[in-house]
């Protein structure tokens, strides 16, 4: 069960134009930086990207937007990106905005083998238009479908060669649920270790969900809002 590939280029080698990708991360935190760089280098285009955010102009998915590789973004919040705004307003880019919990749970449903979920998020709003509504115990819920993504690309802190993953701090965010949801899941990790080095009780994503793993390099881990308090 050795899932190790030789770096990001090999990991994303068979990603083709027009495919649907999930990309882990929240803001710029917990992003699969190496795979994004490899996708930019490969120049694959017409992608549908499912990711909570769209990066900033010169980092994260923003780098793919700049190269016009993205046909459609599926996100909950897409501020902080001027190039994104330009492409959206000019009609070059399609955007589907969905509630953050719905986004996460549609990933989770895919990973749990469930075709759909019911959530109250969006009831009475334009998000509900055209969707099936069911009433349970006197409250309305929207039916939202599980995602179907060709690839899920996630970033973890540590992983072993069998694909077991451990995340660190709030860089966990969407990564575990997306790792479960891809037809093919690629994990890049800061530290790749041998089986047995990770405590089985501490694994966040079991390796069965992961198809390819590699140790990334040169992580920038950019901070979007560096906010500090003063020493008294």
């Amino acid at each position: 069960m050795n899932k190790v590939v030789n770096g990001a280029d090999e990991a994303i080698n068979d990603i083709k134009d027009g495919m649907t990708l999930m990309l882990g991360g929240f803001g710029l935190c917990g992003l699969p930086e190496n795979c994004i760089a490899a996708l930019v280098k490969k120049g694959v285009k017409d992608l549908t990207c499912i990711s909570n955010n769209a990066g900033v102009d010169d980092f994260g998915i923003g780098l793919m937007l700049k190269q016009r590789q993205v046909k459609k973004m599926v996100s909950s919040y897409v501020g902080e990106n001027a190039e994104f705004e330009r492409q959206l307003l000019s009609g070059e880019l399609e955007v589907e905005l969905i509630p953050q919990g719905t986004l996460a749970t549609r990933c989770m449903a895919a990973g749990y083998g469930m075709p759909a979920i019911f959530t109250p998020a969006g009831i009475g709003t334009e998000i509900a238009e055209g969707k099936e509504i069911r009433n349970f115990n006197g409250k309305d819920y929207l039916m939202e479908m599980a995602f179907d993504a060709d690839f899920a690309i996630v970033k973890a802190w540590k992983g072993d060669t069998m694909g077991n993953l451990v995340y660190r701090s709030t860089a966990r965010n969407f990564n575990p649920v997306m790792a479960m949801a891809g037809r093919v899941t690629i994990a890049e990790v800061e530290e790749l270790v041998e089986p047995g080095e990770l405590d089985p009780d501490h694994i966040h994503t079991p390796g069965i969900y992961v198809h390819r793993i590699f140790q990334g390099k040169d992580y920038e881990k950019r901070i979007e809002q560096r906010t500090m308090r003063k020493k008294d």
Partner: peptide
């Protein structure tokens, strides 16, 4: 339009 983030889930 920047998006609703988690607001729709929270208020629902």
């Amino acid at each position: 339009v920047k998006g609703m983030g988690g607001a729709m889930d929270l208020v629902a």
